[in-house]
Design a protein around this nucleic acid. Structure first.
Lengths: 362, 362
DNA sequence: TTGTAAGCGTTATCAA
DNA sequence: TTGATAACGCTTACAA
């Protein structure tokens, strides 16, 4: 019994893949006609179309993508490289992209760079070798070689989650700098003058960097200083958000507003504030960026900026599918973000008691 | 200027892809030799190997995967269908799988089913058409057609996040039922006799179902009843976790322990308990399942079961790569899980005051 | 509208 | 160890 199972090499599986020629024979037409029915049904007479369709279903025929790709020079496959799927806005964007692609008969090859530009290059190379018809990247911190390689291959590509990119690369995303600046201005209006920043600033995270620069610019415009000691770079985990807040507050007790470049950091900070006995927003205001699911559910709910990850993914998919088909459509670069005010921010404490003190102290 | 840019069809790109023959010519060898150097370098003389390698790098040659796939009948591509990337254990598993695959020169085609079996079938079909060399699914609730289709194609596949599957499908995962039962037993030991359950029980989520059944079994064994009204099915969001807890407690104030089939539900429940003024774990114990990042960071930290998503992803990758290469390695079915006791669980309240009352009341 | 035939880029068989 | 040669399954001029 068991022997039987192992002895026969591959008997159980219908080993002989049914191919286009088989369908043609069954339908009594030429292979070309079958191909036409499959790809351009409108140019085949209804009668034959019908006969072929029947043969296709009867034999449960599916096209072999290898032969197809070889001849047509298109794999119906797109690639994406994100920093990590562990960050929910990337998971969401990839999923949205995949869903849209699936409607077009495309499939998505996925890779992750772990925020390392060199790794990103490798993954891009691998994707390209696998013959993707297009590529989506994240951000604007690629190695020059990465762009060079993609252009060499002549496949369409774009970058996402940012609104602008260097070097004529198309981008679909939000204005990170502007959004962060608007958040800073909102806090300034609430009377805050002593800011702390927890940012995720590895070399290849230009989104966090832009957000940080946006904050800097807004504060500078309002003549509010931001000492070096008020800026802490942390990798993007709840744990590090906690740690960041602790360091910030312990060394700079005068801080009344802590701006984080991602919600994960902000929620860590929120949790740590509670542990330290700080009331949010009475004692301290905390802001995030991304508007992840948890942001609205946390206690207190987090004031943050929403990033339209779904739209980004969909738009990237649409653009690349079109571009792969040779259609040059203009890219809608800047998607709108929203400043969402929730319970984690409020007026600066002590503003009533010492109205202009802090301001003049600078 | 702009005209110039559009007028020339494809001039800027180095349009002529360099192919194997070009390398052969450049190196002064036959195409076959180039292919050998690329695929089986050990059977080529060092001298030629060197010459070919130089030509490869000089021309920046990369193999065309279409031609390669056509001839070798392998695409070096694997497929995975998860319910959604929005659940972190799936995002983590997929990422781990991709990372491992990337080491082997494979790439991962990704799709998501949104917890719908029919959608899963479609995505599998699409992946198969794209010529994947192997497939990873999640759970044990596929349509029969799905298995049939995959087997027809003769590609190796397995299912993940569960330890056993029907119909001789290989599985890599944890014993969901056993883990949930052990959690229930732990709560029983703490004196809890009135349980509530918040479970994500759509038709095609057999993991949550197994967890639920595990709890049922453990309670039955201890002669602790679980009325219908104590079981609430909710889709997997924080919001629904909140709602579930509210319903449960309002209709059944005697409940002292709420078991959720995922951490997301549990953290929602935790948040709602706080809103309702219920102290955790003094008034009520709450447990989760998955051990997502937030579980340890929430206040109170969540008692839960850890699911080794990374190991699952890696093991799936290893197995499929081997299987695709024709190596039949045995699958390590059951990966260990851990019961992680944190602050969200404690002794049943009122146990001292009314020791056996509840028990006999049943 | 349909059929014939060539060939996409690679690998693998066979001889040398 | 290397080279010629024949596919792999499909699409698409071109011819009918």
């Amino acid at each position: 019994m068991t022997k039987n199972k192992n002895a026969t090499p591959t008997p159980t599986l219908s080993d002989s893949k049914v191919k286009l020629g088989d369908v043609a024979r069954k339908a009594g037409v030429s292979p070309a006609t079958v191909s036409r029915v499959l790809n351009h049904p409108e140019i085949v007479s209804p009668e034959l179309r019908e006969r072929v369709s029947r043969a296709v279903t009867a034999l449960a025929y599916t096209r072999d993508s290898a032969g197809r790709a070889l001849k047509s020079r298109r794999t119906r496959t797109l690639g994406v490289v994100v920093p990590t799927l562990g960050i929910s806005i990337f998971a969401e964007g990839v999923e949205a992209m995949q869903n849209r692609l699936s409607e077009h008969g495309y499939t998505l090859l996925i890779a992750n760079s772990q925020y390392e530009a060199r790794r990103e290059l490798q993954e891009v190379a691998s994707l390209l070798e696998h013959g993707v018809d297009g590529l989506a990247l994240v951000g604007d911190a690629q190695l020059p070689e990465t762009h060079q390689l993609i252009r060499q291959h002549g496949v369409p590509y774009l970058t996402t989650y940012v609104a602008t990119a260097r070097d004529e690369v198309q981008a679909i995303g939000i204005d990170n700098e502007g959004a962060a600046a608007s958040m800073a201005r909102y806090l300034l209006e609430l009377g805050h003058r002593h800011f702390g920043i927890i940012a995720n600033l590895p070399e290849s995270n230009d989104r966090s960097m832009s957000r940080y620069l946006g904050i800097r610019a807004a504060l500078a415009e309002a003549d509010v200083p931001l000492p070096h000691s008020h800026v802490i770079s942390m990798s993007q985990t709840l744990q590090h958000g906690r740690q960041g807040l602790r360091q910030l507050i312990q060394s700079n007790p005068e801080i009344t507003a802590v701006m984080c470049t991602t919600d994960t950091l902000a929620i860590g900070a929120l949790a740590e504030a509670r542990s330290l006995g700080l009331k949010v927003p009475q004692h301290i205001s905390i802001t995030g960026f991304d508007d992840i699911e948890l942001a609205s559910q946390f206690d207190p709910p987090l004031t943050t900026i929403s990033v339209p990850a779904n739209e980004i993914g969909r738009a990237a998919a649409d653009h690349l599918v079109n571009a792969a088909a040779g259609v040059r459509i203009p890219v809608i670069t800047t998607l709108p973000h929203r400043l969402i005010v929730r319970g984690s921010t409020g007026p600066a404490p002590g503003l009533v008691r010492r109205p202009k003190l802090h301001r003049t102290a600078e």
